[in-house]
Design a protein around this nucleic acid. Structure first.
Lengths: 157, 157
DNA sequence: GTGGGTGCAAAGTGTTTGCAAGTGT
DNA sequence: ACACTTGCAAACACTTTGCACCCAC
């Protein structure tokens, strides 16, 4: 179901490279394939590991050099979940306005969208003399398990 | 006008230290005074500079060791505005649910609160099996000047 | 052919930490 | 007195970069 969209995301990125006169190398292909094959959030290091399974020649430097291109294209967003390293979210290609709920114990993340919130944001922002370009909303709280058991059995991170 | 509240924030932090059997040293006093004297967001380095004006013996290490205490107390919040370093926001003591609008060009930041958004967040979060502990909403966009002139004359950062 | 791309390892940058000396309670 | 704190500098961890070689177009 998400496949045709994801495929489009990859194509969109290739077009982005073309427009900037940047080259499609085997390493970039491996990295981009990896990014849009997953719906998970990932770190630079994870992306390196996964990409190397497709093309062993991918280096850490190339991953770090490709990530800014991905974010610049708008198809991937850099996220800060309060850890020491950045996470990247490939779901902005399909859902440019989604938000995150994170469990404070197990770090489980659920994504959601809300037209209502988007509308209020827009109103308030205009009232303050701004106009919205992007928006990020993170809610931290307790997941079901944490509420019921007082602690989560599985930790995600 | 904000003074009595800010004073309370400082007192609240001193109580927090006491409860954890931590000591009130001259360095900590200088740092904490600095933090709650401002309503600006600041970096660790700025906090060091400012604190040293009150007490020259404050070291970078002590600043970095005090910041986690401040965030743990809930009176200061760590913020990521997409720069290479963290910012700290001392306004959570008085306004625990405020949000940020940031100009994409000049980095000007405006804070606002919204009961409506808070209510919707709560509803959605419960529907997804979570309960809200904290929340952070950042909107990026164009400020008045950027919209009118196409570029901002003053850069904040 | 040529200008962009790559891997490697070294450098960079914000933050953390081990240690010996100092200090609040 | 004793445990908590401190400053210093070295150590860290993630990310960036200089360079010589490579390859997509």
């Amino acid at each position: 179901m998400a496949l045709p969209e994801k495929f489009a995301a990859k194509e969109r990125f290739m077009k982005f490279l073309e427009e900037k006169n940047l080259r499609i190398t085997s390493q970039r292909r491996a990295i981009v394939d990896t990014v849009f094959e997953t719906e998970e959030h990932f770190t630079a290091e994870q992306l390196l590991d996964w990409s190397r399974k497709k093309d062993q020649s991918v280096s850490r430097a190339t991953v770090y050099r490709t990530l800014p291109l991905l974010t610049e294209s708008g198809l991937v967003r850099e996220m800060d979940f309060g850890k020491d390293f950045k996470f990247y979210d490939p779901n902005y290609a399909d859902h440019p306005n989604h938000n995150h709920i994170i469990c404070q114990d197990c770090d489980k993340i659920v994504e959601f969208e809300s037209e209502k919130i988007a509308k209020i944001e827009d109103e308030i922002t205009h009232k303050l003399g701004f106009s919205v370009k992007t928006q990020r909303l993170q809610i931290t709280g307790s997941c079901d398990e944490l509420k019921k058991l007082g602690a989560c059995t599985k930790k995600s991170c």
